[in-house]
């Protein structure tokens, strides 16, 4: 198991460096950063002065090295627009997004996995139909619309929950449901399909032939094998959610990282965009790594590969 973990870790670090280089290069791909900084009315000399001031005239690799050393220390430069350190700007926003992301994926997993298992145990039963209906509805409904419906019903008509903001845990209930429900259908269907396949396999019959009860057959023998692809999918969705959902954050006025990313792109605030891309990618890399380790623990065959 340890060699496997080390190998995956090495790979993850390699990917992280590649991603960091790409996100650094964005600065140059999007045109002359000095000209962008100086503004449209600046003269040639001004642009040149800015180029020297910010060090854009040096070789790209040198600049990358410098940027990376700074980034590793948590220093991502200063936002062009807010004139604040990018790191503190993001840290503020990220706590909202992380809370929402963790709640969202938890909600998705807690609804999708039991539903998927129940649907697979009794295919074509009422539970299966309900699960299918919920997943189709979840896939078909746009998040912004579902979010607005929830606000109308629970915040305005019933007055149970606050319609927007991020100050108490109650503010997170509706966003969690909207974000989690978006991820639920895929997880549910994958769980159901995996369980159906595993339940028809020979080793399940073997377990029954040993006298194992249904609960033991379902959860000890079947679910452990069926959940393996779900882990990989959940990791990707977790990364996606921690990248912030611009739609959900906008609807509920949660000023999270997703919203910040959208603002920064609109304002050409490159240091912020760069840092966000790097952080979002790191989330993906970390969760993919964790999913690999979890899968290797679940399925011994993966450890040797």
């Amino acid at each position: 198991m340890l060699p496997f973990i080390l190998k995956r870790l090495g790979l993850a670090i390699l990917v992280a460096f590649t991603v960091s280089f790409i996100s650094f290069s964005l600065l140059f791909l999007s045109g002359d950063p000095a000209a962008a900084l100086a503004g449209e009315t600046a003269s040639g000399e001004d642009v040149e002065a800015i180029r020297v001031l910010y060090g854009f005239n040096r070789p790209m690799l040198v600049q990358y090295g410098e940027w990376l050393v700074q980034a590793l220390q948590g220093n991502f430069g200063e936002s062009y627009y807010f004139k604040l350190p990018v790191a503190s700007l993001i840290a503020d926003r990220l706590s909202v997004t992380m809370t929402l992301g963790v709640c969202g994926i938890t909600f998705a997993l807690l609804t999708a996995v039991p539903l998927g298992v129940a649907a697979a145990i009794r295919p074509n039963s009422i539970i299966d139909r309900v699960a299918l209906f919920l997943s189709v509805a979840g896939q078909a409904m746009p998040s912004f619309w579902f979010g607005l419906i929830l606000i109308v019903v629970f915040a305005i008509k019933l007055g149970w929950l606050p319609p927007s903001g991020a100050t108490t845990w109650r503010h997170f209930i509706m966003p969690t449901i909207v974000l989690g429900y978006y991820a639920m259908p895929a997880i549910m269907r994958l769980t159901r399909a995996g369980m159906l396949e595993v339940l028809s396999s020979d080793y399940i019959r073997t377990a029954r032939a040993k006298g194992a009860g249904e609960g033991r057959v379902m959860f000890k023998h079947a679910l452990r094998n069926a959940i393996i692809p779900v882990v990989s999918l959940a990791a990707v969705q977790m990364g996606f959610m921690l990248g912030g959902s611009i739609v959900v954050e906008s609807v509920f006025a949660l000023h999270g990282a997703g919203y910040l990313a959208w603002e920064s792109i609109a304002r050409n605030d490159l240091p912020t965009v760069q840092a966000l891309i790097l952080i979002f990618s790191m989330f993906y890399i970390i969760f993919t790594f964790l999913a690999d380790v979890l899968n290797a623990w679940l399925d011994p065959r993966m450890r040797s590969s």
Partner: peptide, 13 residues
């Protein structure tokens, strides 16, 4: 009971 397929009648996990 002993089944036909030894390759699949043991739980891989």
């Amino acid at each position: 009971m002993i089944f036909q397929e030894p390759m699949t009648s043991l739980n891989p996990a």
